[in-house]
Simulated assay, not measured.
Amino acid sequence: MDTEPHTLLRSENRRCKIAILSRGDATSRREATAQNSRFVHVFEALAATGIEAVPVVYDETFADTVRDQLLTMDGVLVWVDPIHQGKTRAALDPLLRDVAAKGPWVSAHPDVILKMGVKDVLYRTRHLGWGADTHRYATVDAFRAEFPSRLRAGGPRVLKQNRGNGGQGVWKVETVPNIGATIRVLHALRGSRPEQMPLEDFMARCEPYFGWGGCIIDQAFQPRLPEGMIRCYVSGAKVAGFGHQLIRALIPPPPQGPDSPEAQPGPRIMHGPDAPQFQALRRLMEDEWIPQMMAALGIDEASLPVIWDADFLYGPRDADAADTYVLCEINASSCFAIPDEAPAAIARAVRDRIRRNMASVR
């Protein structure tokens, strides 16, 4: 007989309450409901698990009000990009740290994001099976001293600012034959066109990336990029689904131009965790790479985000002609859209986290 209660109780008098935090303005905050939220299926899955969830909209202009609201919650699920319309998480992250220090758990916690949800993870885990030819420039001086010779010696490179999303601060860089120090660059931001410029000018353009983000990551360009990107969705340490998409970022636009229909990425085709074509990748993630990443970064399983994703490009085929996979980023700040199977996985992870927290205070 199923004796599981239909609600999770924080005390005898109150159900557990979770905030789903996203960015918006005062109007969207005032009008936010579970039903009109883009996270409606997450709300539904949490409710089916007996967890009350409420939408909370954040902006710097009413941050104190948001902080007070979050302190009334048992937990906070955060979907806020590192960069959105010129705004960063520079004010939000300290707020979330303060909230977490006072009791409510936060996922993803800003300190966990700084370990796994930034491009520096590509360098810190380059020794894992998902790694590639990867370097890190911690200062402007190191960038200027090391990057030019590496570019000349090794073919096209991809430079990535440490914190960003949507292709912002990600560049394909290659030399132009027989034109000295002139290079060709292509920004991953949608609508970009290739540019030719002196290497010195481009490096000066990248210097602001050493501000908030703190470093630049340098990877070898992956020639199989046109075959698409595989997004592996993960809840905690378990794969929750996959998405495959033919992307156009870092691929020169067609003659019709970067805004033409021919230049747009294909749809992301979502799959559940049991999709046959991705089982090799699933086994690698669950059995090897996620545990190895946790060890390398010093993250325990209970601190992993309740939803995150690892984006892979196809690497060189191995000796048996099987695919290999190269990690190009991890998204832990705002992982959405998600496969149909993911909301239930999120709800299970939230339920388990609530139970652990309840047990720890008994």
Rank of each mutant, 00 (worst) to 15 (best):
E4I: 14
E4F: 10
H6Y: 12
L9D: 04
R10M: 06
E12C: 05
R15S: 03
I18F: 03
I18A: 05
L21S: 02
A26S: 11
R29Y: 05
R30A: 15
E31H: 14
N36I: 02
V42L: 07
E44G: 07
E52G: 08
V57H: 08
D59P: 00
D64P: 07
T65S: 11
L71A: 10
T72S: 15
D74T: 08
G75P: 06
W79H: 15
W79C: 09
W79E: 09
V80P: 12
K87L: 07
R89C: 14
D93R: 02
H109A: 15
D111M: 13
M116E: 06
L122Y: 09
R124V: 02
R124P: 08
T125G: 03
G129E: 06
W130R: 10
A132H: 11
H135D: 09
Y137V: 04
T139H: 08
F143E: 03
F143K: 05
P148H: 12
P156S: 08
V158I: 13
V158L: 09
K160W: 02
V170C: 07
W171D: 10
W171S: 07
T175N: 13
T175D: 12
N178Y: 12
I183Y: 06
H187K: 08
L189H: 13
E207F: 00
G211I: 08
W212I: 04
G214W: 05
D218M: 05
A220Q: 15
A220P: 11
P223K: 12
I230T: 12
S235R: 05
S235F: 01
A240Q: 06
Q245G: 05
R248I: 07
P258Q: 00
D259K: 14
E262W: 05
G272V: 01
G272D: 14
Q279F: 07
D287F: 00
E288M: 10
E288N: 11
E288G: 11
A296C: 04
E301S: 15
P305D: 04
P305G: 06
I307S: 11
I307G: 06
W308R: 00
D309V: 04
A310G: 07
F312H: 06
L313G: 00
D323E: 14
L327T: 14
N331R: 04
A332V: 01
S333Q: 11
S333L: 00
E341G: 14
A345E: 00
I346S: 03
A347G: 09
R348N: 14
R348K: 12
R348L: 13
A349W: 08
R351M: 10
D352T: 05
I354M: 09
N357D: 12
A359V: 15
